[in-house]
């Protein structure tokens, strides 16, 4: 039996392709959440950003015929939600976790409301770059058709790592997240930094949402996102607030999410729902094993309500 015909090969290739596709929205949301959490706030509402971003991107692409404009519009919708979250949480005695839950409901509600007319009509989708032509194996070629947003996501993660490490603004964000009194003593407007960090994080989550509707799965419907925005929050804890580690974590989550479809590709449909639940189970397991580890305690931003 030839290598390319074996079931294992099919599954592995399908998982590779799936991991690249599935991980991209995770990557954007996680890097955005990483920025927000580094500033000392947690935004649990990124699920709402993701869904609203997906809807806005699809609608914009449908009306203008320009998918990249859709990506931008999705980001802007994410800024909108992020600004609301950031501003509300700056009020005294307002709990950021509760506001996150509310923004999740608000964002999804808006998306479902305005998204109704866009469930049927097809909109122009994002193009992909065929990087697998050299292999000569069709299944591998399909797996290596990669969307540019994947590389943009990696670039953003690298850029953010540099931003935190080597820029003045990065230092300000980190200080704000580690100790608000210290930041105040530096003359930093803590609330403003956090609002901006939440809005930028919201932008990235919105862009992540555009990937869902404009590339993979590549259509708009109300069941499009199933908790990716929330899993990304857990992913950031797992990646210990490091953008570079977010890349690897997103890839791992993407691979877990690709297990179900990969088995389907070789005709195994038994336990389909359990394979689909794999990312959630993995997240839970990772949280249970990493939440109280010593390195996590050391690297967590000191102002974060979730680790207190």
């Amino acid at each position: 039996m030839d290598l390319t015909d074996s079931a294992l090969f099919t599954v592995l290739v399908a998982m590779l392709g799936g991991a690249i596709r599935v991980s991209t929205p995770f990557l954007f949301v996680a890097v955005g959440e990483c920025l927000t959490e580094k500033s000392g706030r947690i935004n649990l509402g990124l699920e709402g950003n993701l869904v609203l971003g997906a809807m806005v991107a699809y609608a914009t692409s449908f009306h203008t015929g320009e998918p990249w404009l859709g990506v931008l519009a999705a980001g802007v919708s994410g800024i909108f939600l992020g600004l609301i979250h950031g501003t509300l949480c700056s009020l005294p005695r307002v709990n950021d976790i509760a506001v996150g839950i509310a923004m999740m409901a608000f964002g999804t509600g808006l998306a479902f409301y305005f998204g109704r007319p866009y469930i049927q009509p097809p909109a122009p989708l994002l193009p992909s770059i065929p990087l697998g032509n050299w292999t000569g194996i069709p299944s591998l070629q399909r797996a290596l058709e990669i969307n540019p947003l994947f590389f943009v996501g990696i670039a953003v993660a690298l850029l953010m790592s540099w931003f935190f490490r080597s820029t003045r603004w990065g230092l300000i964000v980190r200080t704000t997240g580690d100790s608000a009194p210290a930041a105040k003593a530096m003359g930093v407007n803590v609330d403003l930094v956090r609002i901006l960090a939440t809005a930028s994080g919201g932008f990235l989550a919105g862009v992540g949402g555009s990937f869902l509707s404009l590339y993979y799965p590549g259509s708009w419907n109300e069941g499009l996102s199933s908790g990716q925005g929330l899993m990304a929050v857990a992913l950031v804890i797992f990646a210990r607030w490091d953008p570079i580690r977010c890349i690897w974590a997103a890839f791992l989550f993407g691979a877990a999410g690709a297990i179900g479809p990969a088995f389907q590709a070789i005709g195994i449909t038994q336990g389909f729902y359990f394979f689909n639940a794999a990312p959630y189970i993995l997240t839970l397991f990772i949280l249970a094993s990493s939440a109280r580890s010593r390195s996590s305690a050391r690297e967590a931003p000191g102002e974060l309500s979730i680790v207190k």
Binding site: L44, I101, L230, A277, L284, L287, A291, R292, I306
Partner: peptide, 25 residues
Amino acid sequence: RGVNETISTLLLAYIATAVLFFFVE
């Protein structure tokens, strides 16, 4: 284990739906 209960309960909600569909189908 110090796992944040907001995240874990929401994840468990998704897992519960998968369990339901698995048994029902």
